[in-house]
């Protein structure tokens, strides 16, 4: 019961967030300098064309009316049409967003697979050589821009060793995974650094806790103590951090997709910016923000499941 009402409350909290996302996106596109139609058509735009595009975008109506139209359209799944590609934005999103989600999902999985054991290892070898090396390496990783990491991996493992394709998305699911491997590693690097660092300090905070001593005094096996008592408690804060990092990950995906020529939402975003395709930019911004808030929801629920004290 308590958990059900917690979940419901948490879902209701998303409503103002999503409204705010819509307001920001709306304001962003409409209030910042530069009339979209003029910008789109350039200085060569004829009066009639500008009026046509303005009408198409609903820009000839009062702002409040525009906003209401906008909201109504968004909720009926109508995000307008791409100016450059002349297809509905939703069609583009359905086509491109899954690619980006697969990429970030793989990156997140790789980051977790690397950071959890390494964070553990570093914490248990606190201040010894291996701890220092692991932390130093990740600190360097944290200072590397995504596009640079991507370029280096691409050249070395792709062009030089021919282990992986030098870009693209491939055909069929297995081929997708193969094509996305290097990009996912690229994205995973800084996330693993952040997670590793957080987990290490969380473990060091937990490992001296009295309940760990109590568990040891019960004669439990070492791995039971580490997994059930140390890791489960330590990972709670890491889960929150992971949720917060998903936004960073999606931002990184924009760059990674550009570097590796992957036809995902990020690549679409950059193309739309070059092409001044406002409806697409708007649609992408909204849907990526909604993805992030869904991930927040998921990590909050996961955290509540891990830590029953939260659910009250």
């Amino acid at each position: 019961m308590a958990s059900l009402s917690f979940i419901l409350r948490r879902i209701l909290q998303m409503i103002p967030t999503i409204l705010f996302i819509l307001v920001v996106t709306f304001v962003l596109v409409r209030l910042l300098p530069g009339d979209p139609a003029t910008v789109m058509l350039g200085d060569r735009g004829r009066e009639a064309d500008i009026a046509r595009i303005n009408a198409q975008l609903g820009l000839d109506k009062p702002l409040v009316v525009q906003f209401l139209y906008f909201i109504a359209n968004v909720f009926s799944g109508n995000l307008g049409n791409s100016i450059a590609l002349r297809v509905p934005v939703t069609t583009l999103l359905v086509e491109r967003l899954p690619v980006t989600l697969l990429l970030t999902g793989m990156a997140a999985a790789i980051a977790v697979i690397f950071s959890v054991p390494l964070g553990f290892w570093a914490a248990l070898r606190q201040n010894r050589a291996s701890d220092t090396i692991i932390r130093g390496t990740f600190q360097v990783g944290l200072s590397m821009p995504v596009f640079y990491v991507g370029l280096l991996l691409l050249i070395f493992f792709g062009a030089h060793l021919h282990w992986f394709p030098i870009g693209g998305y491939g055909h069929g699911f297995g081929d997708h995974l193969y094509h996305l491997f290097l990009p996912a590693v690229t994205l995973a690097l800084s996330l693993s650094a952040v997670l590793m660092r957080n987990l290490r300090s969380a473990i060091l905070n937990v490992i001296d806790a009295e309940y760990v001593d109590f568990a040891r005094s019960k004669g439990l096996r070492g791995y039971v103590i580490l997994v059930r008592h140390v890791l489960r408690n330590a990972v709670i804060s890491t889960v929150t951090l992971f949720g917060l990092q998903v936004g960073v990950l999606l931002g990184g995906a924009v760059i990674t997709e550009t570097v590796f020529a992957i036809p995902g939402a990020g690549r679409l975003m950059i193309d739309s910016i070059y092409g001044r395709d406002y409806p697409v930019i708007q649609g992408l911004t909204i849907s990526l923000a909604i993805v992030v808030s869904l991930i927040f929801l998921a990590t909050d629920l996961l955290q509540a499941w891990l830590d029953p004290r939260i659910m009250r």
């Binding site: 990950l249 931002g251 930019i281 990526l288």
Partner: peptide, 17 residues
């Protein structure tokens, strides 16, 4: 709401405008 927007995406969106 701000942390809900992927920072880089938002910056890119604003720069694009």
């Amino acid at each position: 709401a701000t942390i809900t927007f992927p920072f880089l995406v938002l910056v890119i969106a604003i720069v694009s405008v």
